[in-house]
Every structure is written in C-alpha cells, then in structure tokens.
C-alpha cells in the first residue's frame, strides 16, 4: 500500500465516523458548534497520532497477552496530557467538551487503530495512519458542527450568518440531539452515493 493511500484512506473512504460508524458518541455529542467539533477532532487526532507512534515503537516489545492494557495505558496517558493542557490554555473549550475529553480514552476508534494498524506496522506508517484517521474524524465533526451551528444558531464560529432576525428564531432542533442524528444520516447517505459506489 502506498504511503499516500495509508494517509488518505482514513480521511474519506474509511472515515471512522461516516463510513465505519465508530466513535459515534463523541461525534454526535460534541458537534453542536464548529468550535466544539473542531476542538474535539483535534484532541482526538493528537491522542491517536501519539498513541499510534508509541505503540508502533513498542510493538516488538509488547507481549501479546498484555497488549490491550498497555494500549489503554498509553492512550490514557496522552488523553490526560491533552486534558491538562486544555484546562490550562483553552478553559472555554474544555468546559464545552465536558466529559468527552476524558472519554477519548474509550473511543474505540483510537484503540481500534492501535490494535489493527499501529501494532503491526512501521512507525512512519503508523503516524500517517493516525494523522489520516484523526483528520477524517476532525473533518466529519467539523462538517457536522458547521451545518448544525449555521442552521441551529444562525452563526458560524459565533459570527451571525443570516443576520439578526434569523439568529432570533433559528432551527433550534438542529443543535439538539435529533439534529445530530439527522445530519450524520444525511452525510452517510452522501458518502454512500458518491464515494462508496460499490455498496449500492
């Protein structure tokens, strides 16, 4: 597999959220606004990138029987690091993401990449894979956040888009949970139609 393909695979074709349907809980819960979705995506990308890197480095030294506890240890270390840094430097974002930052630990997307890819491939490939899958996750959350914030709050990154009158009575439903399900359904349908034609 070419290096370029390792990287791009996770972006769209095997997008964690929109195609594989994993890591859905944070995707649905933190995509109410662009900032939250993008922030969550970057936090998960950071964790995924470094956990892939470390696990790939250690892959020859990890006894097979205890690999899962070790993966979890490595992942939770990076989650705690991002948790502290976010609290210190991005307190608003930290409060908006709430419990979903510590819950990155159990995001099956990250453990999944560690088990399925990083523990079997070279360091460089693992980094490319982590970046690709992480950015794909970020992309999905940012798109969802954009649509939901524009329709549900009339703003993009907090800036009014359709003027004040729309902002006064937006499609509130979009920022609530049902809006998340609707948007993810529509995005999945679009991906199936235009990107994964073979499954039709």
């Amino acid at each position: 597999m070419s290096k370029w393909r390792i990287f791009t695979r996770g972006l769209v074709r095997d997008n964690a959220v929109l195609v594989l349907m994993i890591g859905l809980c944070p995707a649905l819960a933190t995509s109410g606004t662009v900032r939250d979705g993008f922030g969550m995506g970057l936090a998960a990308t950071f964790v995924l990138l470094f956990s892939n890197l470390i696990i790939s480095l250690l892959r020859k030294n990890i006894p097979n029987e205890v690999r899962i506890p070790i993966f979890i240890l490595v992942i939770s270390t990076f989650v705690t690091i991002i948790d502290y840094f976010m609290q210190a430097f991005q307190p608003d974002l930290y409060r908006a993401l709430g419990v979903f930052v510590p819950l990155i630990v159990v995001n099956c997307m990250i453990l999944g990449r560690a088990e399925a890819f990083a523990s079997k491939n070279s360091v460089f490939d693992a980094i490319l894979d982590g970046l690709g899958v992480g950015l794909g996750f970020t992309l999905a959350l940012t798109i969802m956040g954009t649509v939901r914030e524009i329709l549900g709050n009339g703003t993009f990154l907090g800036i009014p888009v359709f003027g004040e009158s729309f902002k006064k009575s937006p499609v509130i439903f979009m920022v609530l949970s049902p809006g998340a399900f609707l948007i993810i359904g529509i995005l999945k349908a679009l991906i199936n139609k235009y990107v994964r034609k073979e499954i039709r």
Partner: peptide
C-alpha cells in the same frame, strides 16, 4: 509480562507527573 507492564505504567506515571507540575 509483569515487567513490561510495570515499565510502561511507571514511564506513563513519570511523564504525567511532569505534565501535571507544568500545567
């Protein structure tokens, strides 16, 4: 197994203590 687990856990703890002290 035990040794590997201990080393990994210890390394993680040391790294986290530094991050905590800094932040």
């Amino acid at each position: 197994m035990i040794i590997t687990l201990c080393i990994v856990a210890l390394t993680c703890a040391i790294i986290l203590s530094f991050v905590y002290a800094f932040t």
